[in-house]
Simulated assay, not measured.
Amino acid sequence: MAVPVFPLPIPSYTRILGIDPGLRITGFGVIDKQGQQLHYVASGCIKTPAGELPERLKVILSALGEVIAQHLPELAAVEKVFVNVNPQSTLLLGQARGAAICAAVQAGLPVAEYTALQIKQAVVGNGHADKEQVQAMVVRLLNLSGTPSPDAADALACAICHAHGGMGLGALATRSFRMKGGRLV
């Protein structure tokens, strides 16, 4: 009598690309979410050379395309632009962000967008946390042996934010809550 063989279930996971756009330095971070567990895959920075804006945007678009082709994420999460004191800086950052979004869309990835406040709230529990706090929590949540650069940590935090349901609440219903001062009330 033959014993029936049942295939073992293949553990499913979602691969998320987080992007912290910047004209000089664009951070990226790739994580896998398996159930409630997060696993680090890769992170780094894309540095653009000084020069004309179109060439710098091309570097961001091309390099993120390579990251996507190498790591095959299923979706992307991008930090939203905040309004800066200097309108020219805000416009330039917006163009770098546009190049990053285009790289994801070109690869067929759905794109989620989060403010810095939402990302910090989801990762640190405080929407006004500083860069060092974000870095420390990224190291802790992903069990990293070293500390990533601030730009790579921000990108990983963006991916973590998305993995946690956008606000770090997972499946918790939030219909009766609202945001006030970066906190749910």
Rank of each mutant, 00 (worst) to 15 (best):
M1I: 15
V3S: 12
V3R: 13
P4S: 15
V5D: 13
P9K: 14
S12H: 14
Y13P: 02
Y13K: 15
Y13C: 15
T14L: 15
R15F: 00
R15I: 00
R15D: 03
I16L: 04
G18T: 01
I19G: 04
D20I: 05
P21L: 11
G22A: 11
G22L: 10
G22H: 04
L23C: 09
R24T: 14
I25G: 02
I25Q: 09
T26L: 01
F28S: 02
F28W: 08
G29W: 04
V30K: 05
I31Y: 03
I31F: 02
D32R: 00
D32T: 01
K33M: 12
Q34C: 14
Q34D: 08
G35Q: 03
Q36T: 14
L38A: 02
A42G: 08
S43V: 01
S43L: 01
G44L: 08
C45I: 13
C45S: 02
I46L: 03
T48N: 08
P49C: 03
A50W: 13
E52K: 09
L53A: 12
L61P: 00
S62W: 12
A63C: 13
A63T: 13
L64W: 10
G65F: 11
E66K: 15
A69L: 07
Q70S: 14
E74A: 04
E74K: 04
E74F: 04
L75H: 04
V78Y: 01
E79N: 07
K80I: 05
V83Y: 10
L91T: 12
L92D: 01
L93T: 05
G94C: 10
A96M: 04
R97P: 02
R97W: 09
R97Q: 09
A103F: 11
A104V: 06
A104N: 03
Q106I: 11
Q106L: 15
A107N: 11
G108W: 10
G108A: 08
P110R: 12
A112H: 06
A112D: 08
E113L: 05
A116V: 08
A122Q: 09
V124S: 08
G125P: 06
G125I: 03
N126L: 08
H128T: 03
H128F: 03
H128Y: 02
H128E: 03
A129E: 08
D130G: 04
D130K: 06
E132S: 07
Q133H: 03
V134H: 00
V134C: 09
M137L: 06
V138S: 01
V139I: 00
L142W: 07
L142M: 07
N143V: 03
S145Y: 02
T147E: 11
P148S: 08
P150M: 04
A152Y: 05
A153F: 06
A155F: 01
A155G: 03
A155N: 00
A155Q: 05
A157H: 04
H162V: 02
H162A: 06
G165D: 03
G166R: 00
G166Q: 00
L169S: 12
G170L: 03
L172S: 09
L172G: 00
T174Y: 11
T174E: 13
S176V: 12
F177R: 14
F177E: 11
R178Q: 10
K180T: 13
G181D: 12
G181K: 13
L184S: 04
L184C: 10
